[in-house]
């Protein structure tokens, strides 16, 4: 796989790459109704991890979900992974790692991570409640 890490034959520094990823991600998440978390510290930390993951593994993967080495599985965890986990993330109003939140969110600390199992259970409960 061609690496986009190398630009003009020179290795880009981490800070520059973080800025580049930010610009690219913004374009992707905006039409999906998401924005970067207002918590700048967590955004910076997560982007830093992604740049390191990109250096190590070739792609800026989600720093909070496990890779298996299977392409079909792992490609769904390349940031921004919102399109592949839409229902789950929409229910939390954030992505799993919290890099992105719904545009309506001002305080990211009001949001909780909801496990996939809890999400399924609450969906089934709602179904049962319906007449």
């Amino acid at each position: 796989m061609r690496s986009y890490w190398v630009c003009d034959g020179e290795k880009m520094d981490t800070g520059k790459r973080k800025e580049q990823l930010k610009v690219m991600y913004q374009r992707v998440v905006d039409p999906l109704g998401y924005k970067f978390s207002p918590d700048e510290e967590i955004v910076d930390f997560l982007l830093e991890q992604e740049v390191q993951l990109e250096k190590e593994k070739g792609n800026p993967f989600c720093p909070c979900q496990g890779l298996t080495g299977e392409r079909d599985h792992d490609m769904k965890l390349v940031c921004p992974c919102i399109p592949f986990h839409r229902e789950h993330y929409d229910a939390m109003k954030r992505c799993w790692c919290g890099l992105f939140v719904h545009k309506s969110v001002d305080d990211p600390y009001e949001l909780q991570q909801i496990s996939l199992k809890d999400l399924e259970e609450s969906k089934n409960k709602k179904k049962k409640e319906r007449p």
Partner: peptide, 8 residues
């Protein structure tokens, strides 16, 4: 259209 998210 992007098959996983039609908004893109």
């Amino acid at each position: 259209e992007f098959l996983s998210a039609r908004e893109i």
